[in-house]
Design a protein around this nucleic acid. Structure first.
Lengths: 138, 138
DNA sequence: TGCGCATATCCCTATACCAGCATATTCTCT
DNA sequence: AGAGAATATGCTGGTATAGGGATATGCGCA
């Protein structure tokens, strides 16, 4: 959009929940139910924040069967790349984000994408999806 | 504060006025009246946004006679340095910010700090103030 | 076709913040 | 002490957004 891409990005990331979402999506594409699970959100909260991020072009979504898979866009503006590098450098030391990564890795066994991404250390580029996410964990 | 320094920074910079302020202060310390003038703000708007930035530790203020001089803090957290580098890289192409810099340079003649900073290309470290800012330009 | 799951949207309330107006505060100078 | 300049703070109305409950939509399966 017009009002300075950077400002849009800042508006997205100035909310802790959304920051955590982007941080996780920088590791791996994820479906809504996983984000909801890892971040401990209600379905509504997860969906709304993702809609917000999507509306501002920070994430993309594609449907896979009954699941919506969210991921960082393949082609990113320079502004966003700066932020991703910043997150990479600044967040790992903070407990909240460390724990998020721990929980993400714990899903490896349950979910093909997470396994792919975490295991293969692929940097969240959107590989084609091969199998299904876990059933929504309660 | 606690809630993740990065989030604080994002909250500060997600407002265009504050982003422009930080962008200018990255070039040179400035008094309120100069910021007000360059950005075309009311006195109240300038003061409030500066108070917000100050409350969140993105800027420091010191009094010099009757003027308050705002500047970036000498010791900056890594999070803030990332953003300053990002601004440096992403903003100059955008008209709004280019014009701000133009107006800043135009004040060179009128104001010792601007002259110092812009002229000597000192990077907004807080040198000791030697003379006065211009009388508030109308 | 009908059901269940995953996700999105609508409606409502509470909160944060911006902008402007009026007023208070802090200096400096006389 | 008094005046005036520079800056800060209180109050108010308006807007954006978070969060929750209920409901709607899209898709796969029996």
């Amino acid at each position: 959009m017009q009002p300075q891409p950077l400002i849009q990005i800042y508006n997205c990331l100035c909310d802790e929940t959304r920051l955590r979402m982007v941080h996780l999506l920088a590791q791996s594409p994820l479906c809504v139910c996983h984000l909801q699970d890892i971040l401990g959100l209600t379905q509504v909260a997860a969906s709304k924040h993702l809609a917000y991020l999507r509306r501002h072009r920070l994430v993309e979504a594609r449907r896979h069967e009954q699941w919506m898979i969210y991921s960082l866009p393949a082609a990113r503006p320079r502004e966003l790349d700066w932020q991703l590098r910043c997150l990479q450098d600044c967040l790992p030391t903070h407990p909240v984000f460390r724990d998020d990564l721990r929980r993400l890795k714990a899903r490896q066994a349950d979910c093909c994408w997470v396994a792919e991404a975490v295991g293969a250390a692929s940097t969240a580029t959107q590989g084609s999806v091969k199998t299904k996410p876990i059933k929504k964990p309660k």
